[in-house]
Simulated assay, not measured.
Amino acid sequence: MNETTLTFRVDEALKEQFTTAAKRRDRTSAQLLRDFMRDFVQRQEEAVEHDAWFARQVQVGLDSANAGHLVPADQVEARFAARRTATRRRLEDAA
Rank of each mutant, 00 (worst) to 15 (best):
Arg79Val: 12
Phe18Gln: 06
Pro72Gln: 12
Glu46Arg: 05
Ala30Cys: 02
Arg25Met: 11
Asp93Pro: 13
Ala81Val: 12
His69Gln: 14
Val10Glu: 04
Thr4Ala: 10
Leu91Phe: 03
Lys23Arg: 15
Thr5Ile: 08
Gln42Asn: 02
Val10Trp: 13
Asn66His: 05
Thr85Pro: 07
Ala82Met: 11
Met37Tyr: 05
Thr28Gln: 10
Val48Met: 02
Leu70Lys: 03
Arg34Phe: 02
Lys15Trp: 04
Val71Cys: 02
Val10Phe: 05
Arg27Pro: 01
Val41Leu: 11
Thr20Asp: 15
Thr20Ser: 14
Gln31Ser: 04
Gln31Asp: 02
Glu12Asn: 10
Asp63Trp: 00
Val76Glu: 08
Arg88Cys: 05
Arg24Gly: 06
Met37Phe: 09
Arg89Phe: 08
Gly68Arg: 06
Thr7Glu: 11
Val41Gln: 02
Ser64Leu: 14
Met37Trp: 07
Trp53Val: 02
Asn66Ser: 14
Arg56Ala: 09
Phe18Ser: 10
Ala52Leu: 06
Asp74Met: 08
Arg9His: 13
Lys23Ile: 13
Asp26Met: 06
Thr28Arg: 08
Asp26Ala: 15
Gln31Phe: 00
Ala94Thr: 10
Gly68Tyr: 03
Leu33Gly: 06
Leu6Asn: 07
Pro72Phe: 07
Phe54Gln: 11
Arg90Asn: 07
Ala52Thr: 10
Ala21Pro: 04
Glu49Ala: 04
Thr87Ser: 07
Leu91Cys: 07
Leu62Ser: 01
Phe18Cys: 04
Trp53Glu: 00
Leu91Glu: 03
Ala47Val: 03
Ala78His: 09
Glu46Ala: 06
Glu77Pro: 11
Thr20Tyr: 12
Arg27Asp: 02
Ala94Gly: 03
Arg79Gly: 09
Arg88Met: 08
Ala21Asp: 05
Thr19Asn: 09
Thr87Val: 06
Ala30Val: 01
His69Tyr: 12
Val76Ser: 12
Gln59Phe: 01
Arg43Trp: 01
Val60Arg: 10
Ala55Leu: 06
Thr20Lys: 13
Asn66Leu: 13
Glu49Lys: 01
Trp53Arg: 02
Ala52Gly: 06
Thr20Pro: 01
Phe40Asn: 05
Ala82Arg: 06
Met1Asp: 07
Ala55Trp: 01
Ser29Val: 10
Lys23Trp: 13
Gly61Ser: 00
Gly68Phe: 04
Arg83Val: 11
Thr19Phe: 00
Gln42Cys: 03
Phe8Leu: 03
Ala55Gly: 01
Thr28Met: 00
Val60Gln: 05
Ser64Asn: 09
Ala81Glu: 12
Glu92Val: 11
Lys23Ala: 15
Arg43Asn: 05
Thr85His: 10
Gln44Asn: 11
Thr87Lys: 14
Thr4Ser: 03
Arg83Phe: 15
Thr85Val: 07
Gly61Tyr: 01
Asp26Cys: 02
Gln17Trp: 00
Leu14Thr: 15
Lys23Gly: 04
Arg90Tyr: 12
Thr87Met: 06
Gly68Met: 04
Ala13Pro: 09
Ser29Asp: 03
Ala82Leu: 11
Ala21His: 05
Ala73Trp: 06
Phe36Trp: 10
Glu77Cys: 08
Thr85Phe: 15
Asn66Phe: 04
